[in-house]
């Protein structure tokens, strides 16, 4: 838990001081990122099931897969 706390605080500090960074990928360059095949969670129900399969039969749990992606609209 201590590790989680340290990790969390460091991420927040790092990000807090970086508010004037200009986005290096412009919104009009995000066509590829908005493509449905470029999404980590393209089929959430299927992914969730495969993770369940592994969790039930393996000792490890947590940090499965990636999140996010997308067009960055709005």
């Amino acid at each position: 838990m201590k590790l989680a706390g340290i990790l969390l605080t460091s991420i927040l500090f790092l990000l807090g001081g970086c508010s004037n960074i200009e986005p290096w990928v412009k919104p009009y360059e995000r066509a590829h990122l908005a493509d449905p095949i470029m999404s980590f969670g393209r089929d959430p129900v299927a992914d969730s099931y495969m993770n369940h399969i592994y969790q039930v039969r393996e000792g490890a749990r947590g940090a499965e897969g990636g999140h996010g992606g997308g067009c960055g609209c709005n």
Binding site: P23, P27, Y28, N74
Partner: peptide
Amino acid sequence: SSDVSKLYNVVAMPS
């Protein structure tokens, strides 16, 4: 060629 997008500094979609 994204010239106009750059000219108007489009930072959100849509703008």
